[in-house]
Design a protein around this nucleic acid. Structure first.
Lengths: 221, 221
DNA sequence: CCAAAAGTGTTACGCTTACACCCATGA
DNA sequence: TCATGGGTGTAAGCGTAACACTTTTGG
């Protein structure tokens, strides 16, 4: 479960950074290490249903804008004890939301993960890679962005999720040409330091769609 | 399991076409329909091990040049009876090989599938889509091509797998620039109808590699 | 009037497709 | 020498990144 949120800590400038939701294990094995939310699959539920059920214990599911199956981790020794197979999912939470969290649960910057349990570190890496790729050729950004937003906000979100700077100008034209975002017609008020008020946009669809099979958002340089 | 092989049948010109290996069910449920090879996962085997074990019953595994996990199908009603979850794999067999097959097993053109069992039709579609995508940005072609080949042969293979015409000239330059293929230095003899002898190439690596994250092989037009 | 932020116009570049033209061989 | 297939050179198209310049607001 990923969300772009302001960087924590006193000495930081609150710049938006991609975070992942982790949960600290209270019991052995691997007590104290951080895990992805999850659990066992019930006999009569879809995997998706199961994931939603597991996540409901951690956050308010109304915040979940996208949920999608990713890879399966099936090494027989990936966890001690009985053999278990983990099917990972990509969940996305839009940016301004601040779901209440249980005390054992916390958002962590993906670029600075705490010690992770089992194979959950590689799982996060893999999911992040998929997110980066999908930002290029789908409209998946809708699940990270607010309902309406200024382009500079969207740039910050893409930049955080992709892990490299993004030019707002070019992002606008790319996403408009693909009909991924449209202007609402309204404009935001300008901030206290002045500046021209920004036009507001929204995503054209609130459902996952492949918009351009061969598109790319490249890092600068 | 995919392979590019000459089109079957009397009235065809033997043009290479992408085929998938299917197996005809002898027993109910769905007797007579065609299935992907597979079976249950043992307690102490990796999924990959399990797949290799299942496939060994159908073909000589030395022919298998690539094997990779794809999506999981987990709808509780996808098969009757006990709830089962299917994890699909992409297997590739190089082109000139002609593995011996059991009598209930046959190669079928992916563009003309027989009635398939359960959800195996969508599974084949999905695997084909992944193959097409990966031909663009990885060296996965090595697993469909012979050890050495003329460029026109490789063009036929790519064309069959992608499902659209491919220009041999451009394929050469694209794959050479990415260091996916290299010249062997030798040349093939020209066919009985004359023509300039073709230079022979081989794939630089015989292992799966992402060669260019943002590359594309587009259909003409 | 100045600083700050947003938006526009334009150029440059990389990668891919398209296609006309030249090369080598067998009959 | 002609037909056939292989190979080279080159141009065109498209999409994206880069960046200078203009517009609109607040102090």
């Amino acid at each position: 479960m990923f969300q772009v949120r302001p960087q924590q800590g006193p000495a930081t400038d609150g710049k938006p950074v991609l975070h992942v939701l982790l949960w600290q294990r209270a019991l052995d094995p691997q007590r104290g290490r951080w895990s992805l939310p999850g659990g066992r699959l019930g006999d009569d539920e879809t995997m998706t249903d199961s994931v939603r059920r597991q996540l409901a214990e951690k956050v308010d599911l109304r915040e979940l804008a996208h949920l999608e199956q990713l890879a399966v981790f099936s090494d027989p020794d990936r966890v001690p004890g009985d053999r278990t197979i983990a099917s990972t999912f990509l969940g996305l939470v839009p940016s301004p939301a601040t779901p209440e969290l249980p005390s054992d649960t916390r958002w962590h910057p993906v670029s600075d993960l705490p010690p992770t349990a089992f194979d959950h570190g590689p799982m996060v890496d893999h999911a992040h890679n998929r997110l980066v790729a999908k930002l290029s050729y789908t409209n998946i950004g809708f699940a990270l962005a607010p309902g309406e937003f200024a382009l500079s906000t969207l740039r910050d979100i893409y930049s955080a999720a992709l892990g490299h700077p993004v030019d707002a100008t070019n992002l606008q034209r790319v996403l408009e040409r693909r009909h991924v975002i449209t202007r609402t017609g309204t404009t935001a008020r300008s901030g206290r330091s002045g500046g021209r008020p920004a036009a507001l946009y929204r995503f054209a669809d609130a459902r996952y769609r492949v918009t351009d099979e061969f598109a790319a958002l490249r890092p600068p340089g």
